[in-house]
């Protein structure tokens, strides 16, 4: 695959995260996560085409099933089952959110972070975009009040790290990656069960309404 296509895929990941920041409906967030995961899978396919490692193909298949199919399905079922309504509550309003996104992206593209984004000079632009995606995912967890959005933030964070690792040449052994995907499955199940329980108890997934759980 050409660099432009890879750039496009990374752009998709980046834009889906921006979309998650401004999404108005949970259903849209679940679909955005699915698209984002598909982009990651395609990046991994590119890696497979370059290396030809069979174990990587197995991982890609696993990743596709878990992240592209299962996770969005789980989310959508959760939304339907609990009639989760629109939960867009954020700490910062949309214009301010967009400004912070711009600032974070600018920071990543600054000269100061060149030692990190330039691990592989040929992929500098791609690494900068992947690092921006990592930062934006973290900011998503910080800025959103809804537990579902925060779960989506954590999953995007993981997707961004995978993308960054691929372009930085930091891919780990197949066994480790299988382990990570297994972790994600377990994490997804627990997070969704937990979110269902929270919703039943509080009638909301807004984490600020759970404040009296403190102390």
């Amino acid at each position: 695959m050409s660099t432009i296509f890879l750039q496009f895929l990374l752009g998709v990941i980046f834009l889906t995260i921006v979309f998650l920041h401004i999404a108005k409906k949970n259903f849209g967030a679940a679909i955005a996560y699915g698209i984002q995961s598909l982009a990651v899978v395609l990046i991994l396919v590119n890696s497979f085409l370059e290396t030809g490692t069979i174990s990587l193909l197995f991982i890609i298949l696993l990743e596709f099933i878990v992240k592209v199919l299962l996770a969005p399905i789980f989310f959508i079922r959760l939304i339907k089952k609990n009639k989760l309504k629109f939960s867009v509550s954020t700490y910062l309003n949309t214009p301010l959110t967009l400004i912070v996104i711009a600032v974070l992206t600018a920071i990543v593209h600054s000269q100061k972070l060149v030692p990190l984004t330039g691990i592989i000079m040929a992929n500098q632009e791609l690494l900068a975009l992947a690092l921006s995606a990592i930062f934006l995912s973290l900011f998503l967890i910080v800025n959103r009040r809804g537990a579902l959005s925060q779960i989506a933030g954590v999953l995007s964070f993981e997707n961004s790290i995978v993308a960054f690792s691929v372009f930085a040449g930091l891919e780990q052994s197949a066994a480790l990656q299988v382990g990570i995907i297994f972790d994600i499955i377990i994490w997804l199940i627990i997070a969704i069960v937990f979110a269902s329980m929270l919703y039943k108890h509080f009638g909301s997934l807004d984490v600020t309404s759970m404040r009296h759980l403190k102390d």
Binding site: F135, L138, F139, V142, N143, T208, R211, D215
Partner: peptide, 21 residues
Amino acid sequence: QGGNINAYILYIFAALIITLF
């Protein structure tokens, strides 16, 4: 330490950026 998970992630995020710089 107000028990708000968003705040905790913010601290981690801020610490990450400061450390990188």
